[in-house]
Structure formats: structure tokens, C-alpha cells
Amino acid sequence: MVDMTGGVFFCFNGDTEFGGRPARGQERGKAMHIIVCIKQVPDTTNVRINPETNTLMREGVESIMNPFDEYALEEALKLKDAHGARVTVISMGPPQAEVILREAMARGADDGVLLTDRAFAGADTLATSYAISQAIKKVNAHPDLVFFGKQAIDGDTAQVGPGVSEFLNFPLVTYVKSVKISGGTFTVETQMDEGVDVIEGNMPAVMTVVKDASTPRFASLGGWMEAKKTAIPRWGAKDVGAVPDMCGLNGSPTKVVKIFAPPTKTGGTRMDGRDEPDAAVEAILKMLQDKGVA
């Protein structure tokens, strides 16, 4: 059986209460509350498969914040800069995923929560969406916006954001590249297959963010100092009131039965087209046709 979360192991089941410093905007009255979900992923998608066991070899691979999630966080922080908002980051993962929450706080998020519990291990996107939506409800049952990256670079499904929108019963906008808000409404540009749409709606909403959005900011030294001081609560399945049958492997309808390396690209056919350019063009054309193009 393959661990669907991609080999992570959950081993801390804490019950620290939700902490964090109050947002600047919040002190002034009713400010927005934006939640950003961030995932810790291997630093490269260039993972290898152990040919004997057919499992992923992850030794020595560093972990980072999912690159798309940096863009999601940046959109939230830009809204915070412009309108004042509390920005909360949530991650589900092993205890060491705490570092990406700290990094997000160093960049400007106000507080963070780590969802970590063995019971979450092996979750597919249904079980992941459920666990995260339970955590969101505990953080705030009425947030204004919930941001996700377009997809995680390891699991690559792009299903968790839409899944959470379903559990929260919030409108969903995917592939967002810019966000503007005014009063209780938002206007976003989305990158669709064939161009850009402009979409309007009322908050609350779930949005997934693409990499064409604004370049993520760096964490400042002051930000890191501040972030280090803030406690990050660790919540398990019980803390968020998650039903065991809907968590982790038990709550996952999909089962990964096999993983394998794709046919390796060790360089395929090589042709010298210097003397016979016609044959070379013919070969390209044939390959394009075989793939259903041209």
C-alpha cells in the first residue's frame, strides 16, 4: 500500500489551543479574515523510484513550501496590505511541516495552525479536503476568503481547493491570477485554457491561485524574529472534530495500487539532419501525427 499523502508520517497529536497575534486591521474593528492553505512538498519533482520496492525514494530531498502556495499567500498578503486583514495559514502534514508555517508568518501571515495526526496519514484528496475544512471551521466558521495554490507539485491533482469549497459550501473560483475586493464583493481574473475571464462574486469564497499572480515577497529578518515568537498550535483529528471514518486511509475512496517510473527518457531516436533535412522534417511530422497533433 502506498501512503497517499506521499510518504509523510503523522505522529503528533497535540491539543494546543488556537493562538496567534491579533491582526492590525482587526484591532480597528471588523477586518477581513483570510485563510491560506499551504502544503510542504519535496524541493524537486525529480524523485526516483526504488526499483525493488516500487516506493518513492525521498532520502536527502529537502522540503519546501509548495511553489503555488507562495502565490496564494502573496495574494492574501497584498489584500492585507491594501485593506487590513488577518491572514491565517494552515498546513496538514508531519510535525516538520511547521517550518513552512513559520516561513509564511515571517512573510506576513498573522498566525498558523498545523494539522498533524497519524489518523490523517494516507489521505486522498477527499479525506484531505475534509480534514482541512474541519480545521478551517475551527479557526473561523465565517472567514472572508480561503486561498489555495492551483496544485501541489507532488500529488499534482489540483483537487483539494475545490474539495474544500464543497465541504464549506463556499463559491469556488479556480486559476485566479489577480484579486480585487470592494465591500463584500470580489473581482478576480482567472486563467482559463483559452484566455482570461473576469469573475465577480460575494465573499466568502474559495480561490485557487496560479503562478501568473504577483511575485511572492521575501521574508524579512524582522518577520522571522516575530514569527519565531508566535506559538503554532498542533491539532489532531479529535481537535477539529473529524469523524475517524472520514480521515486518512479509511476515509479515502481512491487507492494507489502501484507506482512506477515512466518510460525513461534516455534520449530516443537521434537523426543527422544536416545532409538530409527532408528526412528529418518527415520524422518530426510523423512523431507529431503519432501524438495526435498536426
Partner: peptide
């Protein structure tokens, strides 16, 4: 697995409480 298909099927699968394999 288009922009529309990937997003909306993920919602459909959650509502039907079933699995969805992506892409």
C-alpha cells in the same frame, strides 16, 4: 482534465463522497 473539468469534478466527487483520479 481541462480547467473546467478538473475543478468541477473535484466538487462533484466530494458531494458524491467518492474518489476522483486526476489527469
Amino acid at each position: 482534465a481541462t480547467a473546467v473539468g478538473r475543478a468541477f469534478f473535484a466538487k462533484v466527487a466530494v458531494r458524491a463522497r467518492t474518489g476522483l483520479t486526476a489527469d
